[in-house]
């Protein structure tokens, strides 16, 4: 018996999901962050964020298609993390790293928080 493992399958799937997002195909939720609107796929959000997993597995909330985040959340931080969810690439600038970390903490994305903290330590 044999099997063929397509080593780049995960990144090919993620690229296609991001293409669907950018063309607004089958997006099923709008995340509102301080009046900025971000369209996305619930399944991708809940696969990447503990907060969205909790929201969309809650019978009372799973059918919501507009979610307003806490007013303290930064739109720039959320944009960086949403792009990360769909690309695996986390862009870090001096001007936004704290907003990204705070937003990641809020979204319950602990691995991103840990990595940002290690990045900060090494860059100090």
């Amino acid at each position: 018996d044999s099997c063929i493992q397509f080593t780049r399958h995960a990144s090919d799937v993620l690229l296609n999901l991001n293409r669907l997002r950018s063309r607004d195909i089958l997006t099923d939720v709008i995340i509102v962050v301080n009046r900025e609107h971000f369209r996305a796929h619930k399944t991708v959000l809940m696969a990447c964020s503990g907060l969205f997993y909790t929201i969309f597995t809650d019978q009372m909330k799973c059918n919501m298609n507009i979610i307003n985040l806490d007013p303290d959340v930064s739109p720039e931080g959320f944009r960086v993390l949403l792009d990360f969810m769909y690309t695996s690439r986390l862009s870090l600038r001096d001007s936004s790293i704290m907003a990204v970390m705070t937003t990641a903490l809020y979204l319950q994305m602990e691995h991103v928080v840990d990595t940002c903290q290690r990045f900060l330590k090494t860059s100090e």
Partner: peptide, 21 residues
């Protein structure tokens, strides 16, 4: 996949969705 020979394929695995139609 214990005991199964695994061949690694480095090429693209699925179609690529275009940026726009």
């Amino acid at each position: 996949y214990e005991g199964v020979t695994t061949i690694k394929e480095m090429g693209r695995s699925i179609h690529e969705i275009p940026r726009q139609d």
